[in-house]
Design a binder for these strands. Structure first.
Length: 723
DNA sequence: CATAGCGGGTTTTTT
DNA sequence: ACCCGCTATG
């Protein structure tokens, strides 16, 4: 029977098609809410529908909603979905990543924490340049102290909201690091620059330290929703906590099985501690999966169930089992790539789009072999991540002109600009200019115009500086006059002499660089079309906060290649995960049990991206950096997948016992291709052998990537058995 | 001051 | 295999 409508009309729209826990989450009123959302359980739907409901039913002003997503792309998608539900009111909603939300706050209130509003954002390469200078100041040899590790320590400290003066000092090393940290921070400030961690840290400092500002934002944000909460770090946690007061309308959505960023300071404990901070929190679990086949889901569950430290839960689906998972042993990475091409062929035969196919791997370097094969097979593809477009030297060099025009204190960009192209000014001249700038209390860039007054410069150096001064001045005045950004990029390209430099070079490489920079001009034009209030600094900011995952093109009819980290939050009909091998996945650098668990969660994330078909490959040999071939063992995660879920090469491939490779049969007398082979670690090496009556007959013994023995003797199985 | 050539490190994942 | 920084040389 159909009784009278119990809800107003919008309810049928917002609640139709939702399962009971999803409805509960959407209908939740005020107060803290924790949604434990398994993979593919429709959390984005819950988030968007809940926001729509807050606006429509609870009369919450769109401008008082802050929705935090993991990537800019996810934010854009959320906006798009919300637009369908609440129309143009979506414009007032803050949907952003933690970092971009912080920038937005800081662009307004940075003066409260000692920064100007036009501060620069330093990416990894800018940081590296700056930290090198700090090491230089401290007279520390960068070969003895790795600048990257120092940055790692500093980053860890910042994520825990610890300043240089709050660090524990237990050793000379600690003291050294703290001194560097101090210098680094001072230099950042002098540059009017923040690194990624500062964006979070200073925002927390701002909000916790300044009552007026704090109340302003607390007043403003009445509802806070955070996605991917399992991957928040301490600074982000504190940010949510302070913004959530006093209303405490905080909704967090996450899955402790999908925490894969602990190396970046993320703490899965945040999700578990939510109930401690908000004892009155409502907790809702979403366990029905709408994405994958039963077989894929079962495999994912089985793998992650091997993690001892987790909230037990089991995703389920009513979609039916679907086809088996395929585990394919390959001879090497080229054959792995052929498996990918084979799957592409199969998709084409089935009339499916190439956009439905994704290839995942543990490390970016693995994309190469697949790319080579796809090129040969004329298969269109996109690679997400890897060598970054915006971090290419020529792009950064050109951007340096624009950055310096916005922020004259940016010495890192100044240093780039000075040497590209070469104009006869080197370190010596810069030191003199810098001394003058300090003396006059001028930003380095502004001192350029006074080149005539700087002591000890030769005429060509003066000319070089003056030329630079006028380029920067021109960019700056055009920017003030709101000349379109693409015109500014073009201006910098021409007037800096970079185009002339590359044209004079004439090499194919220089041609490529010119194309890259022309692409940057087009990016500027595209930004002008899209941005609501375009500005040069807005453009630079977007670039700084741009993430690889933002570039994923889901409709372009091409195969998508990316690391599993980048695949978070995405889904594809067909997924191939390559390199399912010990020491690669799980990665060899994952040594502790905790790290192994994180690798396993990563595996879980990868598997659960697949809707319909999942192929896992591993290679017997693989070459790493052009060097010799390494013999490989299949990933332990493969053995954690239930045998009945696996088709293709069959269960043999799921254990450490697999058919003898045919190339081994050739060299081992008395062995047949059907014999079972065992891969095992033995001492520091990797053994490939054949089991015969409890004894391992050695076929190969590899150590340090080199083959030490080919066929020889035997060893008791017990000694060899380990992985 | 700029360049070419060499040696060393690099590959885990990234907002 | 490649990228990067350092050094010797012009």
């Amino acid at each position: 029977m159909s009784g009278p409508l119990r809800y107003p009309r919008w309810v049928s729209v917002l609640l139709s098609g939702l399962n009971p826990p999803q409805r509960d989450a959407v209908l939740h009123d005020d107060g803290p809410l924790l949604v434990l959302a398994g993979a593919g359980s429709g959390k984005t739907r819950v988030l968007t529908h809940r926001i729509a409901r807050l606006i429509d039913e609870r009369d919450v002003a769109p401008g008082s909603i802050l929705a935090i997503t993991f990537t800019n792309k996810a934010a854009a998608e959320m906006r798009q979905r919300l637009e369908g539900l609440v129309g143009p009111r979506v414009r007032a909603i803050w949907a952003a990543t933690f970092h971009s939300a912080c920038v937005r706050i800081l662009r307004r209130d940075a003066p409260h924490v000692g920064y100007e509003r036009n501060f620069a954002i330093f990416d990894a390469s800018d940081q590296l340049r700056l930290i090198r200078r700090c090491l230089e100041d401290e007279d520390i040899d960068p070969k003895r102290v790795d600048p990257r590790s120092v940055l790692g320590w500093i980053s860890d400290a910042k994520n825990r909201l610890l300043g240089p003066s709050e660090m524990d000092i237990d050793s000379f090393r600690d003291e050294q690091v703290v001194r560097i940290y101090n210098r680094y921070q001072n230099r950042l400030l002098a540059n009017q620059a923040m690194d990624f961690d500062d964006l979070l840290r200073l925002t927390v400092q701002l909000l916790e330290g300044d009552a007026e500002v704090r109340e302003h934002y607390q007043e403003r944000f009445r509802h806070i929703l955070v996605d991917e909460y399992q991957d928040t770090n301490h600074a982000q946690y504190r940010l949510v906590r302070v913004l959530g007061e006093p209303q405490r309308n905080v909704m967090v959505v996450g899955d402790d099985d999908q925490g894969i960023y602990s190396w970046r300071g993320a703490d899965v404990a945040n999700i578990l501690d939510f109930e401690r901070d908000y004892p009155d929190a409502t907790v809702i679990a979403l366990e029905q999966n709408y994405r994958s086949t039963g077989t894929i889901l079962k495999a994912a569950n089985a793998v992650v169930a091997h993690n001892p430290n987790r909230h037990p839960k089991a995703l389920w689906t009513d979609r039916g089992d679907g086809g088996p998972i395929e585990i394919i042993e390959c001879r090497d990475e080229r054959e792995e790539a052929r498996v990918v091409v084979g799957e592409v062929q199969r998709a084409v035969d089935d009339g499916d789009s190439l956009s439905d196919i994704a290839v995942f791997y543990r490390t970016n370097a693995q994309s190469r072999a697949v790319e080579d094969m796809l090129v040969r097979a004329a298969v269109p593809y996109q690679v997400i991540g890897g060598p970054k477009y915006y971090e290419r030297a020529e792009v950064k060099d050109l951007l340096a002109y624009l950055r310096v025009a916005v922020n004259p204190n940016d010495e890192v960009s100044f240093g780039r600009m000075i040497t590209s192209p070469k104009r006869g000014v080197g370190p010596g001249a810069v030191t003199r200019l810098s001394a003058y700038a300090v003396e006059m209390g001028l930003p380095l860039t502004d001192a350029l115009a006074d080149a005539d007054r700087v002591e000890g410069l030769n005429p060509s150096q003066r000319r070089g500086f003056s030329a630079l001064a006028s380029v920067v001045a021109e960019i700056r005045s055009h920017a003030r006059a709101d000349v379109p950004v693409d015109r500014l990029v073009e201006l910098a390209f021409e007037e800096s002499g970079m185009r002339a430099m590359f044209e004079a070079d004439g090499s194919a490489e220089a041609e490529g660089r010119i194309e890259n920079l022309e692409e940057l001009v087009r990016t500027g034009a595209e930004y002008m079309n899209r941005a609501e209030e375009p500005s040069l600094s807005g453009f630079l900011e977007e670039i700084a906060l741009y993430a690889d995952a933002d570039a994923v093109d889901t409709g372009g009819g091409q195969v998508t290649l990316m690391t599993i980290h980048n695949a978070k939050g995405l889904e594809f009909d067909r997924v191939v995960i390559i390199g399912m091998e010990q020491n690669l996945f799980p990665h060899s650098r994952s040594e502790t049990p905790e790290q192994l668990e994180e690798e396993r969660r990563l595996c879980y994330v990868g598997i659960t991206r697949a809707r319909r078909r999942l192929i896992l490959t591993h290679a017997r040999t693989r070459s790493f950096f052009g060097g010799g071939r390494d013999y490989r063992m299949p990933s332990q995660f493969l053995a954690e997948i239930p045998e009945e879920s696996v088709g293709g090469m069959g269960p043999a491939a799921t254990s450490r016992h697999r058919p003898l490779p045919s190339d081994a049969a050739d060299v081992v007398p008395g062995l047949a291709t059907g014999d079972e082979v065992v891969h095992a670690t033995f001492g520091e090496g990797v053994v490939t052998g054949v089991e015969q009556g409890g004894t391992l007959v050695l076929v190969r013994f590899i150590r340090d990537g080199r083959e030490r023995r080919l066929i020889a003797g035997a060893a008791p199985m017990r000694k060899a058995a380990s992985s």
